[in-house]
Design a protein around this nucleic acid. Structure first.
Lengths: 142, 142
DNA sequence: TTTTTTGCAAACCGTTTGCATAACG
DNA sequence: CGTTATGCAAACGGTTTGCAAAAAA
């Protein structure tokens, strides 16, 4: 994973940006998060190891990484979740009943999007906003 | 529409709540909004006609109306949009390119939801969060 | 040494809350 | 009159911003 971190940092450097310990730490944190992570989580987790690590730096770095196409984010009810951009078909399913949420790679999400596009003329990206609904368990109960 | 307003107020009354000019005004505003309206819009619009109308009253009333099943809300990127609960298949499509958004009734949204459920085991409600993507125009351009 | 990046503190926006006052029933 | 609803102001959580100081290149 360290290699991947360095690769991203190199990419940054190639575009005229600078390597800093903060960026290195943030990139590592994102790559190390299996699936998804919020800006607050990143800031909180790094506060211990990187003294003075600040939320605004996290936000600025995430924005940069998104421009580079390294990550993308999803809007949950409140707050954002970041995940690797190459993690396609990565949907965020929020249960309206038990309030748990599932960040999962959904096979056939492409098919669903296509169906939606046929119905609306709008080409949807079902990963950018969370999707509300009922999880299997809660759906069974009711 | 006035009749509908009164009907809702009666419903409230039946459940032990009280009729107040503020509630009447808010209900009228929601019913009169074709499609969708935000708490801020309601508060702003009523500030002129109902002296002292306060945002917190708007929020509290909308919450009440949602419990009654009169309205439901959708999470846009920032902030909520309310619409009549019986306005089914009412999706909010936000274009990632031109940033316009479309609040439209989508035929076959049920079919799409079903497809998603089959693929995930999760029963989705595609109207509760906005859906990002590309509108017809922007999709054609690129 | 130039330019970018950071930390900090303050501002922002939508939303929620506590509490005393007003007003419905 | 008892109880519910309101207005107000303050607090909230996530995010953004301006600016001076720190650090990459």
């Amino acid at each position: 994973m360290t290699q991947q971190v360095e690769a991203v940092l190199e990419e940054l450097k190639g575009r005229g940006h600078r390597m800093t310990p903060q960026r290195r730490a943030i990139v590592a944190e994102v790559l190390g998060s299996h699936g998804h992570i919020s800006p607050q989580q990143i800031a909180g987790g790094l506060a211990e190891t990187v003294p003075g690590m600040n939320v605004s730096t996290v936000y600025r770095t995430l924005e940069l990484l998104e421009e580079l196409g390294v990550v993308s984010h999803t809007h949950l009810g409140s707050g954002a979740e970041y995940h690797l951009a190459d993690d396609r078909d990565h949907a965020h399913l929020v249960c309206a009943s038990c309030h748990r949420w599932f960040s999962e790679t959904v096979d056939k999400l492409g098919d669903v999007s296509e169906a939606l596009r046929d119905a609306t003329g709008f080409t949807p990206d079902l990963t950018h906003y969370a999707i509300s609904g009922l999880c299997r368990q809660c759906a069974t109960k009711s």
